[in-house]
């Protein structure tokens, strides 16, 4: 995409290598990510897009045998996201993620969006209500679910579930939001809606 008016740097990969055990999956990636911009990664399947993306919120730390080399600098505080001294939970608190397949929790729509806030210790009903409405509006799904917030999220359609997952990620105001092919499991109409949504964000 084109970049106008000196955008601020939000994150930067520097000589990033990544290994699944012995297998080297990412080789020397250098790449800037700008604040308030959409940066899109394209490439054939298996080329490492997901692996790269999942390095940003340290998802690889959940599984044994994975290893990072190099740095991902995160601004404005210039933290190295990959440093062993940085707690992956802190990283995930700041960087949200939406996955390839919609993965709502088998709970109510309300609780799905509330979860990120509850994890942060927010239990005040009024604050939760407000933030949940805001997040659902942000994910362009509020009008469809406002009358049935207590329904199970699994009763929603695939496209709605994915927008719910976006709302779940938005609710905690992440500084950076990672999308891992969020429309690959969806039909063209739902895909269009989500692509439009990403532009609006």
């Amino acid at each position: 995409m084109q970049i106008h008016d000196n955008p601020t740097l939000k994150a930067e990969a520097r000589n990033l290598n990544f290994y699944y055990g012995e297998a080297k999956a990412l080789k020397g990636i250098n790449m800037p990510i700008y604040d308030k911009k959409v940066t899109a990664l394209i490439g054939p399947s298996g080329c490492g897009k997901s692996t790269y993306l999942r390095s940003f919120n340290r998802m690889h730390d959940l599984y044994p045998g994975n290893r990072y080399e190099g740095e991902i600098r995160f601004f404005p505080d210039n933290t190295n996201l990959l440093s062993p001294e940085v707690d992956p939970i802190e990283v995930r608190m700041r960087i949200g993620m939406v996955f390839q397949k919609p993965n709502p929790f088998p709970k109510s729509i309300y609780e799905n969006v509330a979860y990120g806030l509850r994890v942060r210790g927010e239990n005040n009903k009024r604050v939760l209500d407000d933030k949940i409405e805001h997040a659902l509006r942000g994910a362009a799904i509020w009008d469809e679910v406002k009358d049935r917030l207590q329904d199970l999220a699994s009763n929603l359609s695939g496209g709605q579930q994915q927008r719910l997952c976006i709302a779940r990620a938005l609710a905690t105001d992440p500084e950076l939001l990672l999308f891992d092919e969020p429309t690959s499991a969806l039909d063209p109409i739902a895909t269009g809606a989500i692509e439009e949504l990403v532009h609006e964000l």
């Binding site: 998802m59 939970i89 995930r92 979860y115 994890v119 905690t172």
Partner: peptide, 27 residues
Amino acid sequence: IPAMIREGSMAVGATRWQTCRYHIIPY
């Protein structure tokens, strides 16, 4: 329990215990 549920929980910044308490054990 599918791995994507665990990942979904961890991705919003939950600790292991929060993931167990709100998701793994109930499910």
